[in-house]
């Protein structure tokens, strides 16, 4: 599977982003836990935690207590490039002194990042490249978090918190919330087979789970959109049913990539149009 060239792609998940080899499959194992596999064998794991102050020494002490790994006192030259941005500590196996884990703490945002190497010899070079490209805090000009996993990516304001996610066969879903607003991001594949049995509007209304006639849906080129505009009395009635009165949803067909991408917003109050359009503009499918 590996032809020797290291073509990379960007991965972004819950506050961190980096570039990793395209032949590494990224598995989301938790809200802040990613596992990388090559040819169905795990090679590399990444866990992280955001802190308000530098907890490098405390986390390192806990790691040493709870594992049989020992601290490597001298840092190899290949790791020294990382020390400009991170406090770096390496943990090795006591018997063979093979590097098994690394703890990195960002000097700027104090995020603790634990790297675990499953296959040290094979993955170490690619892992170094990955760690050099690591970003754990948003840039000055942009307060958005990059979410780039599988073959889709989008930028979401950092105050949207990840609630849930699922990666089923052909349907990936992420859900976020911010002060009463709920956002669902979904991506379906392959689009051609989905569209054989249902129209774009029908798929969107099924995913959005609201009983609306397809006639109310706005059709554009390769996309459909629906926005609810309830009157005051309708809002009261919907709220009595303990449902959200304001909905905004869209489903786009990416013909070339054979994918469907959807965004679904719901709230008790009118939705922020500017934020919606900014997220929609950043949502794209990246061919693997």
């Amino acid at each position: 599977m590996d032809d020797g060239t290291t073509t990379c792609r960007t991965v972004g998940w819950n506050g961190i982003s980096f570039s990793c080899p395209v032949n590494w499959e990224t598995f989301v194992s938790g809200n802040r836990h990613l596992v990388f596999e090559q040819d169905f064998q795990p090679v590399f794991e990444l866990r992280w935690h955001t802190n308000t102050k530098d907890r490098h020494a405390a986390v390192l002490r806990n790691l040493q207590q709870e594992s049989d790994l020992s601290l490597q006192t001298t840092l190899p030259s290949s790791w020294k490039a990382l020390t400009a941005s991170y406090s770096v500590s390496l943990l090795t196996e006591k018997k063979h002194s093979i590097i098994k884990a690394a703890l990195l703490t960002c000097r700027k945002c104090h995020t603790s990042i634990l790297v675990f190497f499953e296959d040290s010899a094979g993955s170490l070079k690619d892992s170094h490249n990955l760690l050099r490209s690591l970003q754990c805090h948003p840039g000055k000009e942009n307060d958005c978090t990059l979410w780039a996993i599988q073959d889709f990516q989008l930028q979401i304001p950092a105050d949207f918190i990840l609630d849930n996610y699922s990666f089923a066969a052909g349907l990936s879903r992420l859900s976020f919330s911010r002060a009463g607003t709920t956002l669902y991001v979904c991506r379906l594949a392959p689009a051609a087979e989905r569209l054989q049995t249902a129209s774009l509007a029908e798929i969107m209304l099924t995913l959005g789970d609201i009983p609306v006639d397809t006639a109310a849906v706005i059709h554009e080129d390769d996309s459909v959109c629906y926005q609810s505009q309830p009157t005051i009395s309708q809002q009261i009635l919907i709220r009595l049913k303990r449902k959200m009165p304001f909905h905004w949803m869209t489903l786009r067909h990416h013909r070339r990539e054979d994918r469907l991408s959807g965004l679904f917003f719901e709230d008790k109050k009118p939705l922020p149009e500017k934020t919606i359009h900014a997220i929609l503009a950043s949502y794209d499918i990246i061919p693997l």
Partner: peptide
């Protein structure tokens, strides 16, 4: 053949 990721194919085929 179905233009999906290996991860998705693994879910579908194994199930």
């Amino acid at each position: 053949s179905h233009n999906i990721t290996v991860q998705e194919a693994e879910h579908a085929v194994t199930a």
